[in-house]
Write a protein that binds this DNA or RNA. Structure first.
Length: 491
RNA sequence: GGUCCUGUGGCCGAGCGGCUAGGCUCAGCUCUGCAAAAGCUGCUACAGCGGUUCGAAUCCGCUCGGGACCUCCA
């Protein structure tokens, strides 16, 4: 595969050239949502980030198997005391069957992914659909001597693991230091060591979600599903694993340990972590009350929001920041993004109307290469977008007859813009279901004729009235030398 | 308290040793009946203090500020 893609690998803390294990195939695993509540905007940012990676790898010609799980059991709120399963807890709260909870929030999740134009993953496995695989993995880890059973639960034995392997490499953590900083180690815990984590939890009498296992009825630990499912669908070693930064520890660290314990080696070549979305400088989170849901952002129906924004404006807004930087949400910032997005889309629509010249005043090849190298540099979408706006200026100048472009260059420019804007960044046109029926076209022609006549008679009150009234119907009038254009716009 | 990241102009946000990021905002000009759009020009930057270097927003140290993680988190 001919390319020059570099990705920042959390494991080595540096950018590395991406080399697929068995090109042209690439295995990509991304930690999906725990479907006990609606995904919020911060979650969406992570999935958008890896959607761009998925898209770019495909653009480069790779055959990507993109696996993104749905966590529908095992995500425990606290591992001390009883261990409350998030799905189970929410089921009680809403008085629903756990699988109703799962279904409800999975449907919302899929809707949001579609609204943001994220491509569906190749496989979207659920934890409950892979109980057998998880039990098998627990057995393997037990057999290897890196886990122990107690009261029907099985825990990963971090101290035993530390004798042969490192724990904490990915997140840069030192277990001894963790120990020093963890207070209140009460003796109530069944774990032998504070850093041990559950592979399999015994289900108490009232626990709804339960499966038979060699250790009695129970349910799998959260970290285990990713290990089991990534191994099943991508193999013992695969190319890329992604997720939000807040999953680095303990989730991903434990995943590495489980795989290493079961197979003798780490599972992943490149670990990628997306940074957080903040609101007023603080991580978006439910407990802080600063999180809002995608549909609230679309409608503007939330105290934090001054108005609604379309999904593509939101996506564009996210793409203007690098995925490894925190991104702060504010009304002002997204307002600015909305205008930028419109400017970009308007220019793209203009490309096909450009009139070719015999010569070109712009180097389209060089432009294309710049766009490529931006993406090659660890998916630097903000730089890519800055280049695209250089292209926007070129398109607009050409449209005004101030800059010549050959027919070949125009075609090339059109191709490049479509590739990067639609295929790679994953924006899509948000045409406001424009009614192109003959009736509408005739009526508009008639209205514009009335306005032209008013203008010719210098009856500007009338012409302005027509323009203003149309604007209220979201029909935007633009006068130019050649006449008057109109278009229907939303937002 | 520990580990790590970060501090750029009115706002957002790249850059990571020398070369205009870009978007939005604001001002002027061109176009225009006026708008809008577009083009051109301009306006404010690299938290502070030291150090390394011919040269630092970029490397090092300290100070101050912000954030993430340290078994809920995308």
């Amino acid at each position: 595969m001919q390319h020059n893609l570099y990705l920042y690998n959390s494991l080595t803390r540096q950018k590395e050239k991406f080399e697929a294990i068995s090109s042209p195939f690439v295995g990509l695993y991304v930690c999906g949502p725990t479907v006990y509540s609606n995904v919020h905007l911060g979650n969406s940012r992570t999935f958008m980030t890896f959607d761009v990676l998925f898209r770019y790898l495909k653009y480069l010609g790779y055959k990507v198997r993109y696996v993104r799980n749905i966590t529908d059991v095992g995500h425990i709120t606290t591992e001390f005391d009883e261990g409350v399963d998030r799905i189970g807890a929410q089921a009680k709260l809403e008085m629903l069957e756990p699988m109703e909870v799962v279904q409800k929030y999975t449907v919302y999740f899929h809707w949001v992914m579609e609204m943001f134009n994220n491509l569906p993953p190749s496989i979207e496995p659920t934890a409950t659909g892979h109980i057998i695989e998880q039990i098998e993995m627990v057995k393997k880890i037990l057999d290897a001597g890196f886990a122990y059973e107690i009261n029907g639960s099985v825990y990963f034995d971090v101290r035993a693991y530390l004798e042969k392997h490192k724990y904490g490499e990915l997140s840069g953590r030192n277990v001894e230091e963790l120990f020093e900083n963890t207070r209140d180690l009460d003796g109530q815990d069944e774990k032998k060591f504070f850093a041990d984590f559950a592979l399999w939890k015994n289900a108490s009498a009232e626990h709804i979600m339960r499966w038979p296992s060699p250790w009695g009825e129970g349910f799998p630990g959260w970290h285990l599903e990713c290990s089991a499912m990534s191994t099943k669908y991508l193999g013992e070693v695969f190319d890329i694993h992604g997720g939000g930064m807040d999953l680095k520890f303990p989730h991903h660290e434990s995943e590495v340990a489980q795989n290493t314990a079961a197979c003798g080696h780490g599972p992943v070549r490149y670990w990628l972590h997306a940074n957080m979305l903040t609101v007023n400088g603080q991580k978006m989170s439910k407990s802080l009350g600063n999180s809002f849901l995608p549909h609230e952002l679309f409608s503007g129906d939330h105290p934090v929001l001054t108005k609604g924004y379309s999904p593509m404006v939101v996506r564009f807004f996210m793409m203007q920041a690098h995925y490894r930087s925190p991104l702060d949400f504010s009304n002002e910032a997204i307002q600015a993004a909305a205008k930028g997005y419109k400017r970009l889309m308007t220019a793209i629509a203009l490309i096909d109307q450009l009139k070719p010249s015999a010569t070109s005043g712009f180097d389209v090849k060089e432009f294309t290469e710049k766009c490529h190298s931006a993406m090659d540099d660890d998916l630097n979408t903000p730089i890519l977008i800055s280049h695209l706006f250089d292209g926007v200026r070129v398109i607009n100048s050409c449209a005004e007859g101030k800059l010549p472009l050959t027919e070949n260059d125009i075609n090339l420019l059109s191709k490049v813009f479509h590739s990067f804007v639609f295929d790679i960044i994953g924006l899509r046109k948000e045409t406001a279901t424009e009614d192109q029926s003959q009736l509408v076209l005739s009526l508009m022609e008639f209205i514009l004729k009335l306005r032209r006549e008013a203008k010719e008679n210098k009856d500007y009150a009338a012409s302005d009235k027509i323009r203003n009234e149309l604007a209220e119907m979201n029909i935007i009038i633009k006068d130019s030398k050649d006449g008057t254009d109109w278009k229907y716009e939303t937002n």
